[in-house]
């Protein structure tokens, strides 16, 4: 059964994309969940669509357009939400829509039909070219390196930003760097589940992992494994049922999320103490 699936090169690439993107997803998703910045991450993801449009208009690989665009969006949203006298959700919502609008206009300006744009919005893991795989691998390594080097700083600003500031950390710079890593993770996962659904795969594995973790590194490892599990399950189901892969992955993740909460609810309901 499995041999049948992996006889195709596109399936092998899809599997690699799923596994590689799970690394970034689990690690960065952990920060998104514990720091409760899911909405900001959603904003960055949707603003990134502008980058796809710009890349498409300029005739370059959309991934190359989206990386600088989403990094700029991350910094701008971060600064605006913390420094300006704008409510955070207003700032995020504005960027969210403006980024999408830029993308739509750019794509409209370019003559001809844009067949693969749908795959950036909703993901199409079955059409990942080798170039994109290398890009995903590179971004994974970059994210891993930064998180390893700054692990104590990121833990501090996630748990208690004020204490981090009192300890002499440049919390704003670290926060912006964290948002940039989220932007890169969005780029990595765009191929797998698409911009619209990125936020679910970024948060669900980490949220389930948190229920049984006692440390951030432990939560990251579990989130990576869960993310890989959801992606592979979704991929396999989508192959069997011949339905969209990105959406199937999200449905698998969402179903497991409900299951995990149901398990916790029934386990804890007889008045048992919290998880250890």
């Amino acid at each position: 059964m499995l041999q049948d699936i992996f006889a195709f090169e596109f399936m092998r690439n899809a599997l690699l994309a799923a596994l590689l993107s799970s690394i970034a997803c689990g690690i960065i998703g952990t920060y998104v969940v514990v720091k409760k910045i899911g909405f900001i991450s959603g904003g960055i993801a949707h603003t990134a669509f502008g980058g796809i449009g710009v890349g498409y208009y300029l005739g370059i690989n959309p991934l190359l357009g989206v990386i600088p665009f989403s990094l700029a969006a991350a910094v701008a949203i971060g600064l605006l939400s913390k420094k300006a006298k704008v409510a955070e959700d207003t700032a995020i919502g504005t960027f969210w829509a403006v980024g999408m609008a830029v993308g739509v206009i750019c794509i409209g300006l370019k003559p001809g039909y844009a067949p693969d744009l749908f795959s950036y919005l909703f993901g199409n893991i079955l059409t990942v070219p080798s170039f994109d795989l290398w890009m995903i691998l590179l971004l994974d390594l970059l994210i891993l390196a930064v998180v390893w080097i700054l692990s104590k700083e990121f833990l501090a600003i996630s748990f208690d930003e004020e204490y981090a500031a009192v300890s002499g950390l440049k919390t704003m710079a670290l926060y912006l760097l964290m948002l940039c890593l989220i932007a890169l993770t969005v780029v990595v996962m765009m191929r797998v589940v698409g911009i619209v659904m990125v936020i679910a795969l970024l948060t669900i594995p980490a949220a389930i992992a948190r229920m049984v973790s006692r440390s951030l590194p432990g939560m990251m490892v579990r989130a990576v494994l869960l993310s890989a599990f959801f992606s592979i399950c979704g991929l396999w189901l989508s192959f069997l049922l011949d339905v969209a892969s990105g959406a199937t992955i999200i449905l698998v993740a969402g179903f497991c999320f409900l299951l995990a909460h149901a398990w916790r609810f029934f386990r804890l309901s007889p008045g048992a103490p919290g998880l250890s």
Partner: peptide, 11 residues
């Protein structure tokens, strides 16, 4: 937040 007493104090 998934953090032990040890890691909290380490901060």
């Amino acid at each position: 937040f998934p953090i032990s007493v040890r890691d909290l104090v380490l901060m």
